[in-house]
Nucleic acid binder design. Structure first.
Lengths: 205, 205
DNA sequence: GTTAGCATGTAAGGAGTTACATGATTTT
DNA sequence: AAAATCATGTAACTCCTTACATGCTAAC
């Protein structure tokens, strides 16, 4: 029955509101701009999510700046949301989560979008996790392709070929990112702490 | 409450059973081999789907070959499914559907996997529909990127860049496929009819 | 003064996923 | 006869999508 417990949206909303307060409509545009090519949300997902985050006290309505700037007559105008202290904590928790969910397609994209707020060691774990996940996929597809060369017509083969190449391409991309991360913050001891950005998302192409 | 009305699974299952009868376990493996890198299903999706297709009379249990080859004592062994006449009709209907659903990520992949069973004119419409869809996406992402160059950190930018490149790559792939299709079957008049394969999924790289 | 776009929401439901439960068959 | 793996199934749940309903605000 609704409630939007977790999912990518929660992280995305908290992450965006961490930058600056915003109202829903604006949030949605920015959401689809940041997640860009690989994910899109509609209002039907966003507003229920905001409602739930509000209920949990992770976000709050911003007090309207000017003194009685339109005294909200029948209650229907822009509602600007901001992150609460609990919301910031929750965001940090989500950003520290480096489990399987962070290397599935959806989870990875959103986590990556907020790498700027993520600790270097977590970034590395997510990048490596994602890479293993993709390599598993490559293995199983390649295995399936060689198994008796299951009679496949040319279109199916072409689809497989293109799929494989896409995944291989992403693996190369991850390799570059990982190399670039190692350069900027080798994490010498068991260090853990500040999460200010330090990696520069390699222009290593 | 369940029922699996449409969705990609129905097409995929009917398409696979069109080649040859199979039981569920086998079907699932082949499913994940054909759809390979871009989609995977579990039993929790497949079996309810088979159940529903059975209910609709689109598939049927194959009569066990040998005479009373294990008289199915407590009913628990391999169940081989085959396509019925209605199932074949339904498959043809699905293969003729070239609407928005056929150029979204999921729908496109599955439709493409069965291009061998699809009429040439429909193939073309789907390829072109997919291409427009991706070009829309490119436009909106590029627009978002240039709009005041929304302050984005380096990771977000890197994500956008990689996303754009992936989509551009797919567009190029589609262009090659479309060119290759035009060569083999230019569809001279208002021709419509046979759906035997004739395109050869261009090795035009 | 009416179209167009900004802004907020809800109800119903689709399409799978997860976790579980269980039996049959082959391998060691 | 124990372990692995083949094989089938269900209940509960998740997360989002679609379609709808509404009102405000600026431009023409």
């Amino acid at each position: 029955m609704s409630s939007q417990r977790s999912g990518v949206l929660e992280l995305a909303v908290l992450g965006l509101l961490h930058e600056t307060p915003m109202h829903g409509y604006e949030l949605r545009k920015r959401l689809n701009s940041v997640l860009g090519a690989f994910r899109a949300f509609g209002y039907g997902s966003l507003y229920p999510c905001l409602k739930e985050l509000l209920r949990q006290g992770l976000i709050a309505e911003e007090a309207p700046a000017g003194p009685t700037a339109k005294p909200l007559a029948g209650r229907k105008s822009k509602i600007v949301y901001r992150l609460t202290a609990e919301g910031k904590e929750r965001l940090q928790d989500l950003l520290r989560e480096a489990g399987p969910a962070s290397w599935e397609d959806d989870g990875f994209g959103v986590h990556f979008a907020f790498f700027g707020l993520t600790r270097a060691d977590i970034r590395m774990r997510i990048l490596e996790g994602r890479r293993s996940r993709l390599e598993e996929r490559l293995d199983s597809v390649r295995a399936a392709m060689s198994r008796t060369r299951e009679r496949l017509d040319s279109y199916t083969l072409e689809l497989q070929r293109h799929g494989l190449e896409s995944v291989e391409r992403e693996v190369r991309w991850l390799n570059e990112l990982i190399a670039s991360e190692r350069q900027s913050g080798p994490e010498p001891g068991g260090r853990a702490g500040d999460h200010t950005q330090s990696g520069s998302a390699g222009t290593a192409g």
